[in-house]
Nucleic acid binder design. Sequence first.
DNA 1: CATGAATGAGTTTTCATTCAT
DNA 2: CATGAATGAAAACTCATTCAT
Lengths: 208, 208, 208, 208
Amino acid sequence: MAIMPAKAKIDRTDQSSDRRNQILAIAARLFASHGYAATTVRDIADEAGILSGSLYHHFSSKEAIFQEILRSFMTGLLEQIEEIAAEGRGPRETLDGLIRTAFRVMEEQSDAVGLYQNESTILQSQVGFEFLSEGSARIEHFWREQIEAGQAQGVFRDSFDSAIVYRFVRDAVWSTVRWYRPNGRYTAETLTQNFLDLFHSGVLAEES
Amino acid sequence: MAIMPAKAKIDRTDQSSDRRNQILAIAARLFASHGYAATTVRDIADEAGILSGSLYHHFSSKEAIFQEILRSFMTGLLEQIEEIAAEGRGPRETLDGLIRTAFRVMEEQSDAVGLYQNESTILQSQVGFEFLSEGSARIEHFWREQIEAGQAQGVFRDSFDSAIVYRFVRDAVWSTVRWYRPNGRYTAETLTQNFLDLFHSGVLAEES
Amino acid sequence: MAIMPAKAKIDRTDQSSDRRNQILAIAARLFASHGYAATTVRDIADEAGILSGSLYHHFSSKEAIFQEILRSFMTGLLEQIEEIAAEGRGPRETLDGLIRTAFRVMEEQSDAVGLYQNESTILQSQVGFEFLSEGSARIEHFWREQIEAGQAQGVFRDSFDSAIVYRFVRDAVWSTVRWYRPNGRYTAETLTQNFLDLFHSGVLAEES
Amino acid sequence: MAIMPAKAKIDRTDQSSDRRNQILAIAARLFASHGYAATTVRDIADEAGILSGSLYHHFSSKEAIFQEILRSFMTGLLEQIEEIAAEGRGPRETLDGLIRTAFRVMEEQSDAVGLYQNESTILQSQVGFEFLSEGSARIEHFWREQIEAGQAQGVFRDSFDSAIVYRFVRDAVWSTVRWYRPNGRYTAETLTQNFLDLFHSGVLAEES
DNA sequence: CATGAATGAGTTTTCATTCAT
DNA sequence: CATGAATGAAAACTCATTCAT
């Protein structure tokens, strides 16, 4: 089962020079913290220690930077999911794996995740960002297959709708990026544990 | 137990004229769909059928419009929660009530909710928007009291952290605004049912 | 000798209602303290307790208010000078009288004087404000006649140019409006005494 | 005796490029002739041959231009006065020197002087323009020291107040900028001569 | 690669003025 | 007389982008 389509590595100017990546990281952080529209190319250039005009030696436009950040995030995410799919384990183990992965990605790439969380509504139908809907549709499809397989096998209760539950889970997990602070009160592992616990069993105590 | 502080509503121009409210509604919709920064005062004025400068007869700035939308949303939300608190029911019933209310508010004020979801990260530490953190802190506090009371009474399992669970729930519920479409495939009631089911019991089938 | 031309009382809407005069006084104060351009009609209306649009029931434009203030100031000033001229005293007594009068006017109509001091450069060649140059030319003419008469009579030294001295005196006197504070350290009488002393004898001690 | 404080010139963008100075000169002229508020950034840009937005490449705001003009004027003026103070001559010679210098500065920097004359009232208590009051207080202090020293030494008559006389002199001298025209009827030297004559001996002839 | 100067189209905001009620 | 809503023109300022050096 292929989550990702045939590899189509986009490399406009694939001089993955340090400079480029450094700028991408700076931009991701600023976009995530102030919003894409509210971040100016000068903000990015300032932090990179160059003049705003000089950014155009590395990227063709502000939007190109934005796209590249999200595209590489989405590509990486799909690869991770692909790996889990490749393991071919049962529905419960697979979903647990997806959830663990999501929390890990949220921690490791918090800027891209935050950016996606804040701008996705607006991006959904934007030209040039179709890869986002495509990627997220592919992920949703895989998730629903797993949920429905689990329900068919009696591993999961069948009183809920797979699409709805998927979205609740997805949003709850990714939204943590808004309040999770590395080196804060909680570790990503604690979040994962708590989430899986809630996900598996809900809040109610056994009513034996 | 008081969720809201003493009423102190002193608006500089508190003429809740029809025109004002009409403009607020237009602005809320535009801010929610394109983002605050990407919405121009001219967009708002155009939809209101006036010139952009004329907006300043009603509001002192673009940000003032933004603030007023969020402030009245937060005020209304706190009132709703206050009502539930006033009923003084048990933890499970109270939380169920809060969740039902949230879905209802999400449906009725989707613009304000969407706006809050998309811009909250950026607003968190913005001057003039402190009422958002204050309100949300008050809500979180009430939620956690209920969760912990339920755990103490044995109604809820005590294997999870009240703060973490609250945030998962909050984010999952409010995030629905991003994909829920009135008159779409799902009703708000369906969402509520599915959510409560998941919230109460998780996904796993009884392992008897 | 007539300082003023035939009476041409300007009364566009000569309802010298209290309201009008009240507004003129408010406007004069604001124009004097913040400058004409930096004072908005709304500032004036606010202080008058009405809406800015309502000002237009009393005056045809912002500039009309400005003109009326300066015109009535100039008219009054010319009348005062006329009176002194009518006394027909000698050059020294006449100039002393003019100086005394100027300090008195400066004290009594500080707003108009201040306004004139700050905006005169710009107004000099403005259409609609020709009465200012006309009035001030008339005053200068009278002054120079007196100075030159005094020099001819041997009352004043004749080592200086009447036009230059007139301007030094005029500017020194009127400029006091910028720093003189009623009820402050100095009285207008003190200023007058000091000025006359300096004017008459300069700073140097007798070199006997 | 130090008139100026320790040099602390730290400009954010201290590239005294030709372009900057050129723009400053244009702005000074326009501000002086039409007033600060009545001069638009477009007026300045037009004369500089660029678009109004391009001004912001050189200066952060219209007010910043204003400040820079006045600040460099005040700095230069204080330096000149410092030089005179350094000569350490007697009160009469020192004051004569200050007056000569003032007329020279008035001629050489008529725009800045005119600007200061027209806008000082409004600027007096404006944030960011404190250096004006500070500078002028320092100058006043030096003048009064000289006047009082002269009175103590019997060089000057002691029938007048040093503060009042200083202000008369200052205003009479600087106000000439409003009517003095280079290449006009009078030279700056003529003004200086007339002023010193009046300043030293007043208008009255010897009453032998 | 980077600078520094500029463009041009747009933004929010201001404000004198008008006018139906 | 006054209000309240609006106009319309212009203001200051922003910012992505270009380009000669």
